[in-house]
Amino acid sequence: MREPITISFSGGSALLLQSNSSRFDEQFQKRIWSLATDLQAAPGFTETVPGMNNILALFNPEEIAPEEARRELTERWAKAQPLPRRGKTVEIPVIYGGQNGEDFKPWARHCGLAPLEAAQRHAAGTYQVAAIGAMPGFPYLSGLDPALAIARRSTPRLAVPVGSVIVGGAQAAVMPQTSPSGWHIIGRTNIALFDPHRDEPSTLAPGDIVRFTIEDVWL
């Protein structure tokens, strides 16, 4: 039988634990959150970075031998129970299409839907923040309607504007800052997702619920 997870070293001071399944699994993700919290108190571990379907655990090899760290991680994972975390709900109003959503129509066409219908289905979903990462405050959202999935662009854009509402593969997200990205831009929001001068710099945290609302649709 295939092991459900793989734990491997990423260099001499980090371990990556990841699911062997390439599909998103809510229960698995909840165990990741639980492990992330648990590891904060583990001696020798310096930082944990929950990803989607995976978690990176950084440790100080002067405090804990790498093989010891691997054993520790393996044992703590075995004990990790799904953390029934349901955070705050954040509403994100979206202007779909137009010049701020240049992939909106081709995306709708790819999904075999009329543009308005595609926007409605995107806004009908309940999304959950699986992880924050890739750039300050960037939320990896689970819960995209499979009918709305689309492979990433073969050539990433060098500057996708802040506030862009995007889809890539089976994932949805919002750009917290202007950055390169290979995801498709379907709309724009004015909600700020990141401000380093706030007590909580990131608007969203793992477990939070996101709902998109239709502010307008440019057809």
Binding site: L16, S22, V49, R152, G169
Partner: peptide, 18 residues
């Protein structure tokens, strides 16, 4: 090709890396 990853053979499902 895993679901969620890009189409290039070098693509993986997004992971954290140090």
């Amino acid at each position: 090709q895993p679901f969620g990853a890009g189409s290039d053979p070098s693509n993986i499902v997004d992971a954290c890396y140090p």
